[in-house]
Design a protein around this nucleic acid. Sequence first.
DNA 1: ATTAAATTTGAAATCGGTTTCAGACGGTCC
DNA 2: GGACCGTCTGAAACCGATTTCAAATTTAAT
Lengths: 349, 349
Amino acid sequence: MEYDKSSVGKTITIYDIAEEAGVSASTVSRVLNGSASVRKEKKDRIQKLIEKYNFKPNALAKGLSDTATNTIGIIVADVRNPYYSALFVACEMAAEKAGYNVGLTNSLGEIDRECHELDLFVQQKVDAIIQMGGRVDDLITDDEYARKIRSVCTSTPVIVTGKLDKAPVYSVVIDEGAGMNLVMEHLISYGHEKIALVGGNMMVTSTFYKYRRYQENLKSRGIKERGEYVVNSAYDPESGYEAMNRIFELDDIPTAVIAINDFAASGIIRSIREHGMRIPEDISIVSFDNTYIADLTYPKLTSVDYNYKNYGQALIDTAIAVSMGKECPAFQTVEPKLVVRESSGPCKK
Amino acid sequence: MEYDKSSVGKTITIYDIAEEAGVSASTVSRVLNGSASVRKEKKDRIQKLIEKYNFKPNALAKGLSDTATNTIGIIVADVRNPYYSALFVACEMAAEKAGYNVGLTNSLGEIDRECHELDLFVQQKVDAIIQMGGRVDDLITDDEYARKIRSVCTSTPVIVTGKLDKAPVYSVVIDEGAGMNLVMEHLISYGHEKIALVGGNMMVTSTFYKYRRYQENLKSRGIKERGEYVVNSAYDPESGYEAMNRIFELDDIPTAVIAINDFAASGIIRSIREHGMRIPEDISIVSFDNTYIADLTYPKLTSVDYNYKNYGQALIDTAIAVSMGKECPAFQTVEPKLVVRESSGPCKK
DNA sequence: ATTAAATTTGAAATCGGTTTCAGACGGTCC
DNA sequence: GGACCGTCTGAAACCGATTTCAAATTTAAT
């Protein structure tokens, strides 16, 4: 079968429908939205035409005249990271249930890109913006990013997954500290003391709070923190791999590694294997996010779980509530739990 | 620091800028777009105000009056699948270079959802829609999906990653047949004859063409096809795991498995391991997509690579060209290559 | 200094919807 | 039959940009 691809049909509008039905555009609009009663006879005629032409109202025009677009913008660091893709899908599902659409963009952790995307969503008149993987408030003074968020907030509500006192945003955050407590208790109960923290960037909220609690745990248990056991990097497998290789350059190798997330952990595992070590016999590894990766590595990863479905739901609920001007707690917390699998075990030495 | 979260500032418009600058909106628009010359003195005054208020023109209004929105809609089956997330990011990068924005939605393989998303993108007046993971043309008669695509095509150009003669769409497809040839040659050169094909759904174009070429390869080499060696499923790890478990229920177990993709392959590997078999000593496994997963499984996966960057670029180039009414080949092909890693080896028996 | 040519500018129409407002229509009740 | 009321309906204004068209202002040329 052959089609002429240049035959782009004329887009039909509410006026075309109105004309053919012999009514005014207002009436068609009323039928479309059920916003007022329309005489049955006309209603039927109009609906038939809508059906016939498969008419879909122009969302731009609708958004222009309405106050809301029923769209929520979501900015993640990188959808290729299974943590974000899982959370995004959870948000998408929650939004769908509520009759909202979502838009997605990747910041790739670059401030410029993030600012640009905030602008784009503002221009598109999304009802709210959810920004995942934000930067650490404590480390932000008055840089471009903070200024941008602050200016965006005046027109569009912003929900972040981090803590950010410097701007009027709403936060729905994972209690990273609680997660780290679970991890530390787990490892220390196995007798580990030489514990490394691998991956992540201290400018990112979640990483910063994990690190802080890591320090506190060591301190409260009288274990001295070793600077060389904390290796920063990005969040992907390759970065995890390289970070772990650096650990192996040390004279005294740790008996346990806390990976900043599963994504990086998969690279860490590869490094460990290539160094001829067994997991968990020689080195235990525990990570965060409990994505599908935790299930497919060998051995399977012990990982901190966030319940994506609930988390996504909470983010979307907040976004919708805030955009409709409802009262909403400015700070909400999601509790993590530890899923123990095969990658962690007793410290032999 | 405390902020009043209810203080949503008034959105300022081009008219506000115009008024304060003592010019007309037309002039502001001209400055904004550099579409015509404006006296330097006024221009400076306007730009200063734009800066001062951080004014960003309403994209809805702009889209309404312009013919284009500079946006491309992308529909994937599931961003959680690393194949799609990698391809999406590649598209996003290519689009950005060209000054376009992209929108993303997940169909989750459900026809209803897919149709709904096509409608949404049409309503949002995207300049083109890229639909990845399409259904098999040969198996489509006149179902809801084909009808929908056909009706969408009349208003918005559609680019698919499959073959679809039943509607005037553009195709940029991976040569799945060539990929399967590489895989079969590789396995057969290692002496394998009992080769299973695990995962995937024959309604999906790419899977269908892989299967066809699988059959042809067996036939041309005089190997009889065994129905029980072809197990369909979805494309995720869990589905791969279950599908492979079914293979293990057979009396005569294959010596090599072709996984429909890396994502499913990771589950297949788990099943093989749990059945006490070694890879590749007991069973070889080769898969498609060459995502980051191929590098993080143990052993690493031999996988067919598509060069995401080029592929994404080709999709976006086509989308942009078509949306601007430029001539464009209706059917383009991307050549795959095989990346050999550790999961495939000689057949022992 | 005039006039022609080029450059700037704003009013108004347009994109495709929604919504307010006032009038038309039909029915009910005395 | 007239007053009253509720249901429908369309004209017109509006949302926030762009763009055409013609007028106004400069600038250049003679």
